[in-house]
């Protein structure tokens, strides 16, 4: 409707300018990561490398254990994601379909946990993990995040939107709750579960403060902490640091490409009308 009124070309132009402004930091990063040391240190700064120079990527891998960091982040984010899907889907099923005393209260309690800011609880959580001797361990990185009130809320909403007749039919056929859960509700809710998966993976892939607090050993660092190591070791050669940045960004960019659609739908369904 804007189209009819406004000049199409003008709209494209504005969109293009906005895209350039937003993309500039990323394109500059990508371009610098292919420059040689000499090219990246010149003034006025070059915008494009003379040729695609993969050396920086090789030296990133040699300077810091970046593959190890990516592996760590991958293990941590994947396990948190799977854990959240399991705990949130079972809890959501209980809230959506099971009768038990104190249901309303417990659901309100779950929602209330979303209000507790992380800073308030991070000091005691750090002390707990420290007392359990879980500093520098995958368990310590993962376990505080395995339950998710947001995920429970999101899945409950989507479970409740499944057609009720299906369940009645299944009941009459003599299916118990566990079977209904595993063979009806879960498969029918794959879009919502995918949303939760993408959201939770991205969030924990990008987690910064918690891994900073509880990891000291280099081999336990996640990418976000590891990448700032490059900053201190190699601040003189940006091309190298930026090659590291690109390496670290690739997995989350891929996930965004794959997950943008379900994410948009999921955020709208779960959060907006909350």
């Amino acid at each position: 409707m804007i189209m009819n009124r406004m000049n199409k070309g003008l709209l494209y132009l504005v969109l293009l300018i906005a895209s350039c402004l937003i993309l500039f930091p990323l394109l500059y990063t990508l371009s610098s990561s292919f420059m040689t040391n000499g090219e990246s240190a010149t003034y006025p700064p070059r915008m494009l490398p003379s040729h695609l120079n993969w050396d920086n990527y090789m030296s990133v891998i040699q300077t810091i254990p970046v593959l190890r960091f990516i592996g760590n982040s991958f293990i941590v984010s994947t396990l948190i994601m799977l854990g959240q899907i399991v705990t949130a889907s079972t809890a959501a099923y209980a809230f959506a379909f099971l009768r038990f005393p104190g249901k309303t209260f417990l659901f309100a309690l779950f929602l209330a946990t979303m209000m507790i800011p992380w800073e308030v609880i991070m000091i005691p959580n750090y002390l707990t993990i420290k007392n359990w001797n879980l500093l520098d361990s995958y368990t310590g990185l993962i376990i505080p995040f395995v339950a998710s009130a947001f995920g429970t809320f999101l899945l409950r909403q989507s479970f409740l939107q499944l057609p009720g007749e299906l369940f009645e039919a299944a009941r009459i056929d003599g299916c118990g709750h566990v079977r209904i859960f595993l063979s009806l509700v879960l498969p029918l809710s794959t879009p919502a579960i995918a949303t939760l998966g993408v959201y939770s993976f991205l969030n924990h892939w990008n987690m910064y403060l918690w891994p900073l607090l509880i990891t000291n050993k280099e081999e336990m660092r996640t990418v976000q902490i590891g990448i700032s190591m490059l900053q201190f070791e190699e601040m003189t050669s940006w091309n190298l640091v930026l090659a590291g940045v690109v390496t670290v960004m690739i997995p989350s960019l891929l996930l965004l490409v794959l997950g943008l659609k379900p994410l948009v739908r999921g955020i709208t369904a779960g959060a907006l009308k909350g």
């Binding site: 705990t87 079972t90 099923y93 099971l98 707990t128």
Partner: peptide
């Protein structure tokens, strides 16, 4: 059976929230 199942289904979340949310809130 339904109540027991509900408890089993909620237990993991409740346990984790107790350790990593409610307890630390009081501890803070």
């Amino acid at each position: 059976l339904e109540r027991i199942l509900a408890f089993v289904f909620l237990a993991p979340s409740l346990l984790l929230f107790s350790i990593f949310l409610f307890y630390p809130l009081i501890k803070s």
